[in-house]
Nucleic acid binder design. Structure first.
Lengths: 217, 217
DNA sequence: GAAGAATACGAGCGGGTACTCACATTTGCA
DNA sequence: TGCAAATGTGAGTACCCGCTCGTATTCTTC
């Protein structure tokens, strides 16, 4: 049961085929958001997309393949947003960014990823994402962790930090951040005006040596 | 579709009936762990339990009711472990526990709950807990948050803390803790020997006023 | 032991599911 | 223009699902 094919079956070569594939993906996204995974059947997808089931199965070997494609699209877009935000943050003037500002920027970057198709993101994450055989959330988390670990190893950061294994600290931060940003009841937390500042505090206090001061922005 | 009954249909009055119900629950747990929610059908459950579908439907109005019963059993057991751990921690000598020790104890108590049927716990959490109309994880999180908020309002705690809204702080802590303890890749994190101490640090540093000292245990 | 209540049984119903296939239509290209 | 390849079609197949119901078995009570 884990040997199901999940890749695309045939590549669309003509423009109308690409339109079809796009319609299928969009319809799937809509149905997932509106009715959840269990009620999103291939027949419904085809109907909503305005194509026939047959066309659907020309490009996807089974239902899960569509969802996986959707997930990969989304993950790609979110990673792009994240990496762009981080680049914007660090590139312009390359020196002497206080740790707290860097963390604040990082949080901003992660929050930015939440703006990318939030409804679809939520449903994919909660209903199909992190269990099942293809653990894409795991991959996402690992990439984010690597990125944060690299940032933590930067000399500028090291200067303001206590002695700490960068990989371990990155794991802690990313996982804690994951909970705060995507866990249950995260909507309410994020909506709170104090949220961004407090999350920043949570992380910087953890990284800084004991006894360091911290002023409000 | 949200008006489905989820409570038990009929209470087992004889011993053999209780055996049947128990067999159904155990079979369901096994199938959930082995094959996931989607492949755990009532027919399969009955077969694995060594009873007939008819018997199954005598005690449960539908499939989800079984899962909910399983969830409630588990939640109850875990809560028991949690409360016992907390009692052990606080009862013996009732005064003057440093904040960091209290947090450490709380973390220990939560970690202890992870030892209760971890496989079942994981699958229930990830696959069925937090989507669908019955949002059980949400409920669990809310209860935990309330508990922590109450603890934070205790005068002993307040003394060592910075000025901070207890409800908000509790949310942050519970959500962050959730990510670290149950998020993707949490296994690896928790297995690390530094984990417990670092999580303790993460939380205490967040709660304490800036500039407070903290020694290793 | 008789009688009624509780329990157990499982074939089968209605319906939704994933997916196929023989055929129709459109497209690119010579 | 003609023709093969690409694409689109949707009725139909085989299957599995949740769940019911009439019947058989076992327990309790007197």
């Amino acid at each position: 049961m884990s040997d199901k094919e999940l890749g695309p079956r045939k590549a669309p070569r003509q423009k109308r085929a690409q339109v079809t594939v796009e319609a299928i993906l969009q319809a799937t996204a809509q149905l997932l958001i509106q009715h959840g995974y269990r009620k999103t059947s291939t027949n419904r997808i085809a109907q909503r997309a305005g194509v026939s089931v047959g066309s659907l199965y020309q490009y996807f070997p089974n239902r899960d393949a569509i969802v996986v494609a959707l997930f990969e699209d989304l993950a790609h877009k979110q990673m792009q947003v994240f990496e762009d935000s981080v680049a914007d943050l660090l590139e312009p003037r390359g020196r002497e960014i206080p740790l707290s500002d860097a963390v604040r920027g990082l949080i901003g970057a992660i929050l930015a990823t939440r703006t990318v198709e939030p409804d679809l993101s939520r449903i994919l994450l909660e209903e199909v994402g992190w269990t099942e055989h293809v653990n894409l959330v795991d991959e996402w988390t690992q990439r984010a962790t690597t990125l944060v670990a690299t940032a933590l190893r930067h000399p500028d950061a090291q200067e303001e930090m206590r002695a700490l294994d960068a990989d371990f600290a990155a794991s802690m931060i990313v996982q804690a951040g994951f909970g705060v940003l995507y866990g249950p009841r995260s909507e309410a937390l994020i909506a709170d005006p104090r949220f961004e500042e407090e999350l920043c505090l949570l992380i910087t206090c953890y990284l800084k040596p004991r006894g360091a001061g911290e002023g409000t922005s």
